[in-house]
């Protein structure tokens, strides 16, 4: 017995000594637990807040929003629920299901505002405070929401138009990946407003990446004079870069939103600039402000949207942000 014990101890000791002190999955796990186990810093009751977005399945942007919301929920002792659908009717039904469950607070996006009008009114009638995030800054107040957190899409679009001008671009392509999203339309029309050159819209199917790439490729091949492509979501910037290579185009690729790949692309010079609206902040602030309203009846913004963007990011800023994009919070 004693001999076996000694052998076991030796094996254990060896495996411990053979451990890498840096990197690997263990380091990732340690970092993650440290991050995620933000223990509740408050002693308010465990309220339930629900968030319903217009996101499609598996969208990076909304993953970051959720991370922010969950971080704030952990801190504020909130039971956080999330659901999404890219069909207006489905989204409004999802909000209805949370009203049925009598949640203590609701966070909704108003990408298709009219479809959400009735349910948001229903929620406020039922005494559930509503905060709108991301899209719907124009309608939020009228529908009875406490406040809106997001980026004014027209302002963001205008910033892009100015930036394109500053870079001396003449003919740009605006790639829309969600048909019917009013915010996306505003981005492109905002950019067209301030941009001195010619800007065309291109609709692609955002849930089908090869299709996005092929559509941009075809457009660049048919019109070689296009010298800038603006995608409206970070994952599509990479598709645009690939399309540009195969099409042999010289166009500069710029994008809305940020992710690890975009940060790397900015650093490497594949991308010109990115316009960030800080999705983490939208999720985090929405939960936090609902908590503040529940706890202290505080409302931020003074009846105006609380802006989280636009922030123009170029290769210079990318190095610093790369770390944050890799852990999925920017």
């Amino acid at each position: 017995m004693r001999a076996i014990g000694a052998v076991l101890a030796a094996v254990l000791g060896a495996s411990l000594a053979g451990c890498s002190a840096t990197g690997g999955k263990r380091a990732e796990e340690a970092r993650r637990t440290a991050e995620a186990q933000g223990r509740a810093a408050v002693d308010t009751p465990r309220w339930t807040f629900a968030m319903v977005t217009h996101s499609g399945d598996g969208d990076t942007f909304w993953d970051i929003v959720q991370k922010g919301a969950r971080q704030a929920a952990a801190k504020d002792n909130i039971h956080f629920l999330y659901a999404h659908s890219d069909e207006a009717q489905q989204q409004s039904q999802l909000v209805q299901t949370y009203i049925d469950q009598k949640v203590d607070g609701l966070i909704v996006t108003l990408a298709k505002p009219e479809a959400m009008k009735d349910v948001v009114a229903k929620a406020t009638r039922a005494g559930i405070p509503v905060i709108t995030v991301n899209s719907g800054s124009a309608e939020s107040r009228a529908y009875g929401a406490l406040t809106h957190i997001g980026q004014d899409e027209t302002v963001a679009g205008e910033a892009v138009g100015d930036e394109l001008d500053r870079r001396g671009r003449k003919k740009a392509l605006c790639v829309l990946h969600e048909q019917g999203n009013v915010g996306h339309e505003q981005r492109c029309s905002g950019a067209a407003k301030t941009f001195g050159g010619d800007l065309r819209n291109l609709y692609v199917d955002g849930t089908n990446m090869p299709d996005v790439r092929a559509a941009i490729e075809a457009k660049l091949q048919t019109d070689p004079s296009i010298d800038a492509v603006v995608t409206l979501g970070a994952p599509f910037a990479d598709a645009a870069v690939q399309a540009k290579r195969t099409a042999g185009s010289e166009a500069e690729i710029d994008t809305f939103d940020l992710n690890a790949k975009v940060a790397a692309g900015l650093k490497a010079g594949d991308l010109g600039f990115a316009v960030d609206q800080q999705p983490y902040l939208q999720g985090y602030e929405a939960v936090d402000l609902l908590w503040l309203y529940r706890y202290n009846a505080d409302v931020l913004g003074g009846g105006r949207p609380v802006l989280t963007g636009p922030q123009i990011i170029t290769g210079k800023d990318a190095a610093e942000l790369q770390e944050y994009t890799q852990r999925g919070t920017r």
Binding site: E87, A88, Q89, S92, K112, P113, Q179, G180
Partner: peptide
């Protein structure tokens, strides 16, 4: 919904 989204 008063308004119709064309892509749905």
């Amino acid at each position: 919904f008063d308004v119709v989204q064309s892509g749905e």
